[in-house]
Amino acid sequence: MADLSAAGSRRPTAAGGLLGPYRALVSSRLRSQLAYRRSFALDVLGSFGVGLIEFAEVYVIFSSISVLGGLDFAGLALLFGLASLSFSLADLLVGHIDRIPTYLRTGTLDAFLLRPLPVLAQLVTSDIQLRRLGRSALALGVLVVALVVNPIDFTPAVITLLLITPIAGTAIFCGLFVVAAGIQFWLIEGSEMANAFTYGSNYAATFPTSIFSLPMRVLFTFVVPAAFTAYLPTLLILGLPGPAWTPAWWGWLTPLAALAVWGVALLAWRAGLRHYTGAGS
């Protein structure tokens, strides 16, 4: 955040400080997306609809049962809101990087390699998808309603947790997207597999981790830490005990999980890019 003052100025910044180049990249993207208002509005609506389908699943399931994995409908709405908010924000920020095969085919990645900026930073800032705010809006709506209808004691700890969780959760999903992008350098034709990883962990995150069998619980806690994005913090917020293997106080560890994911993500990305430029193996 070298010179935030320049962000507000009308004239384009020249040297622009440390973040100048990225500011220019992002603002040019956003302007181009907002150029066609009607089309943009429809896209936001479509994104909202995707979130709606997801929530419909929860709604239908709870039309015949009252408790799933230790959470009632209100509790599950809180879980869903947290997970979906984090995922949709991550999808907005970095979701486009699952298009690595397209970037390779069109030579966009080569153009990135010819510019004096880190490739991953260029990739992230090259196509931020504002339309995915539709899904975030739905998630935020569900989250706010859930916070009202659940019996929550808003202690400073709970409020802190409510602030930390979406940020760290977004970071976790962003990291998972980057891991998937790194892997895609090897799976050019099989890029759909990356979806299993990213969208799959989102799907798992919107349900209580306790309903899964032990191996899957271990997977979604320690390998792909989806449980940290919403389930564990939800237990803490609602004052519920965690199941065996995952005590509720782990809900505080979401930032640590985000750090771990990003460590792996940067390694995977580096390895993937080295594979592409032929520097590896």
């Binding site: 799976l187 034709e189 099989g190 890029s191 759909e192 597999m193 799959g200």
Partner: peptide
Amino acid sequence: YRSAALAGAVT
């Protein structure tokens, strides 16, 4: 699109 089919099956 065999690779794509494999990736789809995994997903």
